[in-house]
């Protein structure tokens, strides 16, 4: 007789849905106003070529929405979690670096800095954003490295590893 889901499985499902909903919401906010996101990407001063700037502003929000859909449905959960973790680490480094530049330029306490990082939520305190990203990265890594998140998933493994048998 099959017993019900374990606490870990339920937690995995909760984390998967939390990550999916949160990332999806942030992606939709950016996709809803891509011009605002375009300006935010430009403020980092890393991309000068117009088509690269445009491609970044077009692809990232929808990629987040797509990843969120996969997580909510439970498709390719580990690969999606890895992808999200990679993206989140990149964003966090950029936000932290930009915050550090502001901190140096304005001689303000690091955690008092507040700016629109282009994350979709408007102006936010730097430390709040970094803490939020740390939670999201932790969730994505947990989903990506373990087997949690399998519960109620449509197709947990999109690709079965050739060495998995």
């Amino acid at each position: 007789m099959k017993s019900g889901p374990t606490y870990i499985e339920l937690l995995g499902l909760g984390v998967r849905w939390f990550l999916g909903l949160w990332v999806g919401w942030l992606g939709l906010l950016k996709a809803w106003d891509p011009v605002l996101f375009l300006k935010a990407v430009r403020q980092y001063g890393l991309i000068d070529t117009p088509w690269v700037l445009n491609a970044t502003a077009i692809l990232l929000p929808w990629l987040e929405v797509f990843s969120a859909l996969l997580l909510l449905l439970g498709i390719a959960v580990r690969g999606t979690a890895w992808l999200l973790a990679g993206m989140l680490v990149g964003f966090t480094v950029l936000v932290g670096w930009h915050g550090w530049q502001l901190h140096v330029a304005h001689q303000m306490p690091f955690c008092a800095i507040r700016f629109d990082c282009g994350c979709g939520t408007g102006e936010i305190h730097l430390c709040t954003k970094l803490a939020e990203n740390a939670v999201l990265i932790g969730s994505a890594l947990w989903l990506g490295t373990g087997r949690a998140g399998q519960l109620w998933s449509v197709r947990y493994h999109l690709v079965r590893s050739c060495v998995s048998t």
């Binding site: 929808w62 990629l63 390719a76 690969g79 992808l83 493994h157 999109l158 079965r160």
Partner: peptide, 15 residues
């Protein structure tokens, strides 16, 4: 290997 391959596929389809 499996998750990395999966991440690559998700990225391509996502684009």
């Amino acid at each position: 290997f499996g998750p990395a391959l999966e991440a690559g596929l998700v990225l391509l389809v996502g684009i």
